[in-house]
Amino acid sequence: MTVRRFFRPLHLCAVTVLVTSGIALAYVNEAISMALEAATPYVKEGFSVREDNWSGETEEGKPLLIRHQLFRGNEYWFWAGTSYEKQPVRVDVFDGSGKPVAIENFQRGYFAGARVLPDRTATYFVRVTVGDPKKQKKQTIDWSLVYGYR
């Protein structure tokens, strides 16, 4: 699996990227666009979306875990996306003991989200799953995660 971060200005250059850096890179950019699309309505609700993102390619259905410092008093949304059609995307958030802490989740088409109101300031774990873990024949699939806070 590869993990990359991309600048937002690069999203605007997806066609150039496709030509110069290969189709895989363009797909990952598409995954970032999907995650940001999921975030868009929440910006109007006062969420600040971090410019940074976490993305790459992985085996279909293989869960990914990202450690994340959250602060009690903030509200967080995590949004994940993929460019692959009809692939289930899911985001879950757990505290340090493994207890699920998301108070709201959604899955829609190419993206998914999870909302967290941390009950304490600590390190949490964000799990992203793209694709069906039970599928026999697995393909490489792109993914991306962005987050916002208010």
Partner: peptide
């Protein structure tokens, strides 16, 4: 409020077993 809401939601997702996580831990901290 978040504690109450978390309690209500926690039943829907199985706890995460960090000791035997089947996927991949991204080796970076946000």
């Amino acid at each position: 409020a978040s504690l109450l809401a978390v309690s209500a939601h926690a039943n829907e997702v199985a706890p995460l077993d960090l000791a035997s996580f089947p996927g991949e831990l991204i080796n970076e901290v946000v």
